[in-house]
Design a protein around this nucleic acid. Sequence first.
DNA 1: CTGAAAGCGCTTACAG
DNA 2: CTGAAAGCGCTTACAG
Lengths: 341, 341
Amino acid sequence: MSRTTLQQIAISLDISVTTVSKALRSYPDVSKETIARVKEEAKRLNYKPNAFAVNLRTQESKTIGLVIPEIVHQFFSSVVKGVIEEAEKHGYVVIILQTDQKMQIEKKRIEFLIEKQVDGILLALADETISYDHLYEVKSLDLPLVMFDKIAKLVECSKVIIDDKKAGYMATKHLIDTGCKNIAHFRGPMMSQNSIDRFLGYKKALAEHNIVFKESNVYSCLKMSFEEGQENGKKMIEKNNGIDGVFVNTDLVAVGLITQLKKMGIKVPEEISVIGFSNWFLSSITTPSLTTISQPSFSMGQLIFKLLLSEIKNRKNNIPVEFETVIMPTELIVRESTLAR
Amino acid sequence: MSRTTLQQIAISLDISVTTVSKALRSYPDVSKETIARVKEEAKRLNYKPNAFAVNLRTQESKTIGLVIPEIVHQFFSSVVKGVIEEAEKHGYVVIILQTDQKMQIEKKRIEFLIEKQVDGILLALADETISYDHLYEVKSLDLPLVMFDKIAKLVECSKVIIDDKKAGYMATKHLIDTGCKNIAHFRGPMMSQNSIDRFLGYKKALAEHNIVFKESNVYSCLKMSFEEGQENGKKMIEKNNGIDGVFVNTDLVAVGLITQLKKMGIKVPEEISVIGFSNWFLSSITTPSLTTISQPSFSMGQLIFKLLLSEIKNRKNNIPVEFETVIMPTELIVRESTLAR
DNA sequence: CTGAAAGCGCTTACAG
DNA sequence: CTGAAAGCGCTTACAG
């Protein structure tokens, strides 16, 4: 059973392919009667336009690319969901590709999307990406690009991010406000801009409250794993330097830390308060539940698609494109792991 | 800057488009010298084939559709990862669509993929799907289809599943083997075949060990949420009928149950053993960590793509297609929430 | 209001 | 070994 074509409808109705094509899209210069006849026949023959032919003719694919470091991660899978849902509404298809945080793979993925002739690209940079040639290529092809979460400040395009520094500040300030005097920070990888900014927020909050920053109170979590939370928690306690609050770069590590503290007989939040980051689902179901900073993900997915779509449309209509940078709000979610003392 | 076409290369080298086309794909009937010249020129001009034209000509899209109930779910996002990685290796693109467990949405998504002319479809059925017209349409179009996780037994196609009944049996038997005498079951939705099969496995294990099945020991979790684990746990304890082990349909609910039991002062596993299902990431980091049944997800994603690809290729080469049903292994993961008594 | 013709960029059967 | 021609299925500028 092969697909119905415009030609078949034309023959069956004894009119031209041109008229059929126009009638199906309700062109005003086709008579109402013809439109009705054509549509009926199309329905009867279960006509579906050949997408390839349409693409070739219109030079549009109605497809966009979404490049992320890793899909099996609640933040990204939720962004993906937001993008897909929004794209569906507008008849767009989304190609999802992963980079595993590697620059070389990111370059390959971008090349691939260019070859596939997507109408635009959504990108969260890999941590290890340090040169932007592939992004300049995208720009030189006049291909709309929107970056999110991990962005390259130097590349001119629309961007959607959160203010990590402010959020890190907010988290640390919450510890200070609830009476912590000696606050540690479990930070993420050195290369990650998000980690750097959260760390800067931490330092800023300390400085503003006249608490001396000590390098020895900062612990690095390169993989941001549960185990690193445990290991660094152990190290921290063994130093025995009176920590009473910890701001952790991400929830998973925070849960590892709490597990370790419980194991060592230290009470959370009575002896040590812990605040995480991201508001992963798991943070609401641990014991104690985790105070954290929530960051938008689903709505970020929706927003980046909308920005990309408007850029696609503007370009098509030769309206000058203006790039914008949107900073989405983060929120303090107070749960059981921090306590006013 | 517009894209280079075959024609441009042909003009620049003063040979025909035909030869350029063949040379780029190293046809044996083109001279080595010409091949070299053409490839060099193509590189110099940064030639990339126009995917639409190729699609239109070859009637292949090198694109497949993947339809799942919900992406923000560890099992499915991990399947997605497996599919994408495998597809990338073979130059295929994956369109991911969600159904939210609704039959009507599933039908729409399948229609959409047919219109987009994907080369094949991977599908995990929505729980609420009860008629299969849309799948018969796929088959009538000779479009390769592979179902996984949630399948329709009546539809003829390749299938990849786990043996939920056997796995439910295994879980329950583990409780029996470790000394539980009075075992409850928290089951999933009535409509879900997976839930039904796990429940049947539970009953079978009881029967085989001469333990009387009691309807009153079965609790339904329609949404399979953390909260339902808590609520049903409360009900169960209030009944006060000496339950000493619970097989829970999925890990998240099991964690809810354990949280509730702890809250009520009941020790897990000393007083009540709990076993979950799926081996979600969170089950390894709770306190106590959760004994569970692991099911393949990443490797399931790889496998379903491979099956689909071989079907696509066989059809193309007119090799008769043989459907197969693969049952992937599940495994008992013993952790702290169950205990030999 | 209708339709003939050109063309999007490629691949392939065929002729030489 | 090379190339002219047809054609995949559509859309659009143009003529009538």
